[in-house]
Simulated assay, not measured.
Amino acid sequence: MISAARATGAAILTLGLLAGCASTPGQAPTAAPTSPSAPAAAPLDGPQPIPAGATVSPTRVQVPAIGVDTSELEKLSRATGGELNPPVDFNRAGYYVNGPAPGDPGPAVIAAHVDDTSGPKVFYRLRELTTGDQVRVTRSDGRVVTFRVDAVEQYPKDQFPTAAVYGPQPGASLRLITCGGSFDAAARSYRDNIVVYASEVPG
């Protein structure tokens, strides 16, 4: 969980999901770009664990289209309620440590905050991605995996598509997540989430 001083805005989602939210509203994202429907997936009750012994992790994420180049990713785990905690450091992205590593079969999940009181953060421009944009992830084993954006979607937090984000996939896929939509001043959190769906580019 993030510290109490910052927890007011970095609200954690229900349904086993992750949010990258701000403590005060910046320029709130509007509707996500028109895109294909999110990939279908089998029903899933929140993030699922991977087999013990997995040691590969993402160490760098590059999204040239929106100027993202971030390293030293945080390990993100589930809270007691089943939801996934957001990064503690607002200037760093994080990855779901019990999910597949980017480039391995299944959906890897990487998330970051959209902004905070000081201004835009790592995934502030995530909503600007469009189909065909590329995401490069460097792994701890030295492999660099390239993904192509399939869809960019925006969801109310109470309608987050847990199965589509975390559900089993036949190949290697990637999910990038942050907050979006209008800002709820009472809850000190954005009302929606932006989710980018991407698939590995065959090497």
Score class of each variant (00 low, 15 high):
residue 166 Y to I: 08
residue 103 G to D: 07
residue 152 V to Y: 02
residue 203 G to I: 12
residue 9 G to S: 07
residue 42 A to D: 12
residue 154 Q to R: 15
residue 139 R to W: 04
residue 176 L to A: 07
residue 59 T to L: 06
residue 112 A to E: 02
residue 14 T to R: 12
residue 35 S to P: 00
residue 157 K to I: 06
residue 158 D to W: 04
residue 62 Q to S: 12
residue 44 L to D: 07
residue 56 V to G: 04
residue 113 H to T: 03
residue 126 L to P: 07
residue 161 P to F: 01
residue 74 E to K: 03
residue 176 L to F: 02
residue 5 A to G: 15
residue 43 P to G: 07
residue 174 L to R: 01
residue 157 K to M: 07
residue 62 Q to P: 05
residue 115 D to E: 13
residue 43 P to A: 03
residue 73 L to D: 06
residue 114 V to C: 09
residue 200 E to S: 10
residue 74 E to R: 00
residue 169 Q to A: 09
residue 198 A to Y: 03
residue 18 L to D: 02
residue 166 Y to L: 10
residue 171 G to F: 12
residue 123 F to V: 00
residue 169 Q to Y: 00
residue 194 I to P: 04
residue 141 D to R: 03
residue 137 V to Q: 09
residue 61 V to K: 00
residue 12 I to L: 12
residue 187 A to V: 05
residue 37 S to F: 02
residue 8 T to C: 14
residue 76 L to G: 08
residue 75 K to F: 08
residue 110 I to T: 03
residue 180 G to R: 02
residue 60 R to L: 11
residue 102 P to S: 04
residue 10 A to P: 02
residue 195 V to M: 00
residue 6 R to L: 13
residue 185 A to K: 07
residue 136 R to G: 03
residue 115 D to A: 15
residue 127 R to F: 09
residue 138 T to Q: 15
residue 60 R to N: 15
residue 187 A to R: 15
residue 196 V to Y: 08
residue 147 F to S: 05
residue 107 P to T: 00
residue 125 R to C: 10
residue 109 V to K: 00
residue 18 L to I: 13
residue 116 D to S: 09
residue 176 L to W: 04
residue 5 A to Q: 14
residue 18 L to R: 03
residue 92 R to Q: 13
residue 110 I to R: 02
residue 65 A to S: 13
residue 108 A to N: 07
residue 65 A to D: 04
residue 23 S to V: 13
residue 97 V to W: 01
residue 51 P to H: 00
residue 139 R to Q: 09
residue 151 A to M: 01
residue 44 L to H: 07
residue 82 G to S: 11
residue 129 L to M: 12
residue 101 A to Q: 06
residue 67 G to N: 02
residue 195 V to R: 01
residue 99 G to E: 04
residue 51 P to C: 00
residue 60 R to F: 09
residue 26 G to E: 10
residue 122 V to L: 05
residue 47 P to Q: 14
residue 164 A to D: 11
residue 60 R to I: 10
residue 3 S to D: 14
residue 41 A to Q: 06
residue 68 V to N: 13
residue 103 G to W: 01
residue 40 A to I: 09
residue 90 F to S: 14
residue 32 A to I: 01
residue 27 Q to A: 15
residue 133 D to N: 14
residue 51 P to Q: 00
residue 190 Y to R: 02
residue 135 V to L: 04
residue 155 Y to R: 09
residue 148 R to K: 13
residue 117 T to P: 10
residue 11 A to M: 11
residue 138 T to W: 15
residue 25 P to F: 05
residue 129 L to I: 00
residue 37 S to I: 01
residue 112 A to G: 10
residue 144 V to F: 08
residue 49 P to H: 00
residue 140 S to Q: 08
residue 60 R to W: 08
residue 125 R to G: 10
residue 122 V to P: 08
residue 178 T to V: 03
